[in-house]
Design a protein around this nucleic acid. Structure first.
Lengths: 375, 375
DNA sequence: TTTATTTATTCCAATATTGCAATATGTGAC
DNA sequence: GTCACATATTGCAATATTGGAATAAATAAA
């Protein structure tokens, strides 16, 4: 017998390919899994008899015998995706065929701490069970700050006082008896982009996350780039501008900072509750502050693109309110500043995922991590 | 039958593990290849009977039956590694057990062009055959400038006039009838670091290559980061400093530029032929120009480390002459400039590979690409 | 209509791989 | 020395996977 571990992995991969629509016939699956058609046919039969897949009719190609199209069974179960920050917790339910079937967002009180956040998370997962079809299969969590995915521990997050070394995975596994997978929230958004956004066919792109802070996530060869201290993409801690003893980029280019610069509000001004909306009304801005923000972002795009040479750079968070106009201005200015980019202008786009990106990403992560039981 | 392609890959991996010394018994190989001990034993027996491996005695662990230690047979063949730039061509021979057995370096005339470089390369490979034991197995080439590894075509290199779309792989395959593998020269150096340098056990590090230009190569998860235009790591084309309309980093931080800054020579001054030696005599410099260079490099290290969070940053090229003192100064200043680095100071080290890095890297690439014939 | 061609799937004998038990060869305790 | 234990390797029946031929089901051409 081939190792059962590998068998499970192959079955899981087959399901992922069918769910994504990338390979929906036995033959296409064989190519995608790099296995023989015979074996793949066998696998598919297993997955059909275990009610994970069904045949949903025929699809005629240009010629030859038509494919017997495979689909994932929505009723086979569902995945929970949790994402949170200091302000709110978001929970989404995604059914087995990869369709988002529910979303709950709950605002956190000002005095939230690690314990209350964890309680809110378990409460939301329990709520998701209402109206769900089939069993809960896996839970994905996107946590802010530093995260150790291997150990399933959230290490640190500045905006929640006692959020230090929280054993998220173990707590939730204990509670729900299903696999739990933990990652940094920006990094799960990268997965969301692949499953639900414009990154579907891509395996090489970057997520730009100017939110309370400023981080990025880098997808290369279909895999998230990782680092020694689980701190890749922490570019918010670059000093900016890169001369003298500047401030950290966080303080100049995060969403709140950009809103202050564009609106002319002082450092002590209270932030609008709806930052996205507030920025939208500023998206037609002109003048020095607009040009200044564009210039800063252009430099960052130039640095990133000459280093990473990625296919796409997805803008996430409140700044998406600035629209395509902003992306175009940034790209134009980047090429201006760094002539080498003329041959390869960066492809900066507004993410289409909106506010659910985090929860969807966490659910995506759960979908990618889950494996079927062996019969 | 399992696909013969996969069999070959496994045999090749087994040889790589034995050669690197990372797994030198049947059992350790089984773990490394994620195959059962039975299968692995079978593979090893095949490789022994095909004279690629031998048993070289026993090694007692803390307890239990001792390992039957495996070694690669040096006489089983050899690999050619070629690296070049506008000034010189370097060729090294590495025997089957991974030992460097010959090195030839030849200076190119000023009027060198694509054709003469290719002729020099074939001449050097032919020369390497003198005194070689066993057959030539594969050729690795590290070419400067833009390279398309998949097609085996060198796309562009500024310092050789007609070096455009040169079909290096096809030409050499035709000539020598062995597999030829082409890559950017800085990127093969990354492989050299793994095989011959300090990166042996690492799969996450960065090569800093301030030479005629300034590029870097990024190893993540044991694999070289790639990009859309084969232009990852082209940070020499960043504008520098990052304010106003600066020059490109090439012009400020390449080896010649640093020599000019430290020595006080003007832009029109003729470069010393031995840049490494010339820099060595400047390695005790102090004062503004030294601090300025250190400051610039510190900013780059800060940017890179907060983005990539790599285990190590290997300095290559003539600037290695500045010694550990330079690395320490840069690291110190980087932490100064970007306080976030205090928790995770970058590990910047001088590569121990010296001038042969390119050739060794190309040979490493050949070693990694070669697969044994199936019996 | 018939035949050739293309593509998808399935059947089956051949074989590669595994799991497990057996064997080999050492250390450490008593 | 003998026994318990630890680790490495091998033998073999059980089985997972493959390659290739056969079958299925469509289009295109004659």
């Amino acid at each position: 017998m081939r190792s059962t571990e590998e068998l499970r992995q192959n079955l899981a991969k087959a399901i992922l390919h069918v769910r994504s629509g990338h390979a929906t016939s036995r033959r296409a699956l064989a190519d995608a899994l790099r296995l023989s058609p015979s074996t793949t046919g066998d696998y598919v039969d297993q997955l059909i008899s275990s009610r994970h897949l069904v045949e949903s009719g025929l699809e005629q190609g240009r010629m030859g015998r038509p494919k017997r199209v495979l689909k994932t069974v929505p009723e086979a179960g569902w995945f929970a995706g949790i994402e949170f920050n200091a302000d709110r917790v978001q929970a989404v339910r995604v059914d087995f065929s990869g369709v988002q079937t529910q979303t709950i967002t709950r605002t956190l009180p000002d005095e939230a701490n690690a314990k209350s956040v964890m309680m809110e998370i378990t409460a939301l997962i329990t709520e998701l069970k209402n109206g769900a079809v089939g069993p809960l299969l896996a839970i994905g969590v996107g946590a802010p700050g530093l995260v150790d995915p291997d150990k399933g521990v959230a290490l640190h997050y500045s905006f929640l006082p006692d959020w230090v070394d929280v054993a998220v995975r173990d707590e939730l596994t204990q509670c729900f008896q299903v696999p739990v997978i933990l990652e940094n929230n920006l990094r799960v958004i990268a997965l969301a982009e692949r499953w639900f956004g414009g990154g579907r066919e891509l395996d090489d792109y970057v997520i730009l996350g100017p939110r309370s802070g400023f981080g990025i996530a880098v997808m290369k060869h279909g895999r998230l780039i990782d680092g020694q201290h689980h701190a890749t993409g922490e570019i918010g801690r670059w000093v900016w501008p890169l001369t003298g003893a500047g401030r950290e980029m966080h303080d100049v280019l995060s969403s709140p900072a950009v809103w202050r610069r564009l609106s002319g509000a002082g450092t002590r001004a209270r932030l609008p509750t709806d930052l996205h909306g507030a920025l939208q009304s500023l998206s037609q801005s002109e003048g020095d502050s607009w040009d200044g923000v564009v210039d800063d972002y252009a430099r960052i795009m130039g640095l990133l693109h000459l280093l990473l040479d990625s296919h796409a750079y997805f803008l996430h968070g409140p700044l998406t309110a600035l629209g395509v106009r902003f992306c175009e201005a940034v790209t134009r200015q980047a090429v201006n500043l760094m002539p080498a980019l003329k041959q390869m202008p960066p492809n900066m786009v507004i993410s289409s995922l909106g506010d659910d990106a985090g929860g969807l990403g966490a659910a995506s992560h759960a979908m990618e991590a889950w494996e079927p039981a062996i019969s």
